[in-house]
Simulated scan of single mutants.
Amino acid sequence: MPDGAENSLLERGDHRPYPPPEGRWALSMRWHDLLFMHWPVGYDALRPLIPPALDLDTFDGSAWLGVVPFRMSGVSPRYLPGVPHVSDFPELNLRTYVTAGGKPGIWFFSLDAHNPLAVRLARATFSLPYYDAAMSCRPHGSDGVDYRSVRTHRRAHDTRFTARYRPTGPPVEAGDLERFLTDRYCLYAADSAGRLRRGEIHHDDWRLQPAEAEVSELEMTGQIGLKLPDSAPLLHFSRRLEVVAWAPRRVGS
């Protein structure tokens, strides 16, 4: 990302709950065709799955579980261009929401990616639970997306996701729940020794659209020993977002 574009993006920060971190970002990327699928779940079901140093975040007494398919492009370190077929790939994550030190963030149970290099770099540098997967993310019609993911990582729990989704209206103003689910400008991860790390990000405010989805395969939560609620998920769509990320830092001593 050129310096001018970086400065412009970082200046647009009034929507954030706290300022972007000091220092230069390390990685830039674009996110495309995101579908947010969210279910409320019981606090006691998720609390044992989260490190003790993190507080499980709740909204109206419920924790939330999210499945988010999307596509990444232009993933590249600072001052380096993206490389076709290396910097562009689909990704699918299973997540919940946590907080530490006054900074609400995301806890990823898993991230599947169609890029073996990205999987290994993210595991080594960010301590994130990335997994190899065979994936496709293709346009459908004028505004829809056909998405499929099957995990192929050796000795990893099976996950599958197949869906067709699309926005059903123009962007709408986010309410309190939508902001709780999306206004997250950091992620948390734990290394092999259990040490907590925080990776901070910045982007413009989300342009969320109502969405619909036809889901034919959804096996994402067996890996954490949970079953998704029978209720229909809360759905949102976002077409594109420019993102910068800082190198992860230790949280606490």
Rank of each mutant, 00 (worst) to 15 (best):
T125Y: 11
P104A: 10
V145Y: 05
D146T: 07
T152D: 09
M135Y: 15
P139M: 13
V145S: 07
A156F: 15
Y131F: 10
R151C: 06
A118N: 02
D112Y: 09
S110K: 13
L128R: 01
T96E: 08
L111Y: 07
A156W: 14
V119D: 01
G144V: 05
R155G: 05
I106F: 08
V98S: 07
H114Y: 12
D143M: 08
S149G: 05
D158K: 13
G105T: 04
Y130T: 00
R120M: 07
F108M: 12
T99A: 14
D132E: 14
R154F: 12
S142D: 13
R120Y: 04
R154I: 03
T99H: 06
G141C: 09
N115E: 12
L128M: 09
V150K: 06
R151S: 07
S110C: 15
H153T: 04
A156L: 12
K103S: 03
G102M: 08
A156N: 09
D112I: 01
Y97T: 00
F108K: 08
S149C: 11
L111E: 10
T99M: 08
S110T: 14
L117W: 10
A156V: 08
D158T: 09
T99L: 06
A133Y: 06
A134Y: 13
A100P: 00
S136A: 14
S149T: 03
S127K: 01
H140Q: 12
R148W: 14
V145N: 05
Y147K: 04
S127C: 04
P116Q: 07
L121F: 10
H140L: 14
R123Q: 11
T152Q: 12
T159W: 15
A156Q: 13
M135C: 11
D112E: 15
T152R: 10
L128G: 00
S127N: 08
F108W: 12
Y131I: 01
A100G: 02
H157A: 14
V150P: 02
A124C: 06
A113F: 07
R123G: 09
A113T: 04
V98E: 04
A100N: 07
A113W: 04
F108Q: 06
D132H: 10
T99P: 00
F109Y: 13
S142L: 14
A118C: 03
T96N: 09
A156H: 14
V98P: 02
P116Y: 05
D132K: 06
R95C: 06
I106N: 03
G144A: 12
S149Y: 02
R95S: 05
Y131D: 01
V98H: 04
L121H: 02
C137H: 15
Y147P: 02
Y131A: 03
G102F: 11
F108R: 08
G144Q: 06
D146R: 15
A122I: 01
G141P: 00
G105Y: 04
S127Y: 08
P139G: 13
M135A: 10
A122S: 12
S127D: 06
Y97D: 00
S136V: 12
Y131S: 04
S142R: 14
P104V: 07
T152K: 07
G141R: 09
S142W: 11
L121T: 01
A124H: 04
P139W: 15
W107G: 00
R95A: 05
H114E: 14
L117E: 01
S127I: 00
V98T: 10
I106S: 03
G102D: 06
H140G: 05
D112K: 07
G144L: 08
P129M: 01
R123T: 02
V145L: 10
R95L: 09
